[in-house]
Simulated scan of single mutants.
Amino acid sequence: MTDPTPSARAATHDEPEIQRRNLLLAGGVAAAAAGLAAPGAGKAQEASQVPPPARQPRAPAGGKSPWGYDTWKQATPQPVSIRPGEAPLPQRPRAYTDIKSYHAHVYFDEDTSQKAALLRRWVSERFVVELGDWNLTPRGPHVTPSFYFGFTNDLLHVILPWLQLNSLGLTILLHPNTDDPRSDHLYYTAWINRSQPVNGYGMKKPGEGEPPVELIYPNTKPFLPIET
């Protein structure tokens, strides 16, 4: 028997490869046809994986809402004033001599209490001030823990820049003391680092028989010179 020609041998060698390609091509066409026949199959599978909505609680049997059932019809009210008790616009500027003294309120929390303690010690060692107690809970218009110290006007030009450089990153409210404590805490303020809410809207001017301005009674005995 004679050997097949080279072209015949090549054809015989390529037959398995041709069959494999035809099989893969036929499978791909079938898969594409199946996808065309059911275009929403993928979406249906995705939708089946979405968790069902939470069950809404049922209203208790009997009874009714104390607010009635027409609250949605109520008109939107307008407050009498955004800042209740605020005085009308002044006719002329206030005299700076209305300021009789200053308070510095130093705010802190559980993460910054050591910084507050250090700053408090520094102040008492260097300045003649009225140093108040620790307030570990909100007190008065102050909504976070704090301590304060009061000082006279002649120290403002020193204490203000000193606090700016030695605040240790703490929030400090610096306000004057006039005969209007509400405005002192809300409008006449200076903040070191950042501001925070002050609940001073309920504060009122001193009543009859009360001192017109909060007085300062220094209680520290500084023994260190101020850094210059």
Rank of each mutant, 00 (worst) to 15 (best):
A104Q: 08
Q78C: 07
R94N: 02
F108R: 11
Y107T: 00
T76K: 15
R92C: 00
Q74R: 15
S113T: 02
T71K: 09
A95E: 11
Y69H: 14
A87M: 15
A117I: 08
E86M: 14
P93A: 10
V80C: 04
S101Y: 04
P90R: 15
D70L: 10
L119F: 01
S101A: 15
L89S: 06
A116Q: 06
F108Q: 06
P77H: 11
W72E: 01
I82D: 02
S101K: 11
H105K: 05
L89N: 08
Y102A: 07
H105A: 04
D111G: 14
A75E: 03
S113Y: 08
K115P: 01
G85E: 07
K100A: 08
P84V: 08
P90G: 03
D98I: 03
A104Y: 09
A95V: 05
G85I: 05
R92N: 02
K115H: 09
D109L: 12
T76R: 14
E86G: 11
Y96F: 05
P77C: 09
A75N: 08
A95P: 13
D70P: 01
V106S: 06
L118W: 13
P90W: 13
P79R: 15
L89C: 06
A95R: 12
R94I: 00
T112M: 11
Y69V: 04
D70T: 12
L119I: 01
P88D: 11
K100H: 05
R83D: 05
H105Y: 12
P88M: 04
W72Q: 04
R92E: 00
T97Q: 08
Y96Q: 13
D98L: 04
P84D: 10
A116P: 10
P79F: 14
H103N: 09
T112K: 12
V106N: 08
K73W: 05
P88V: 01
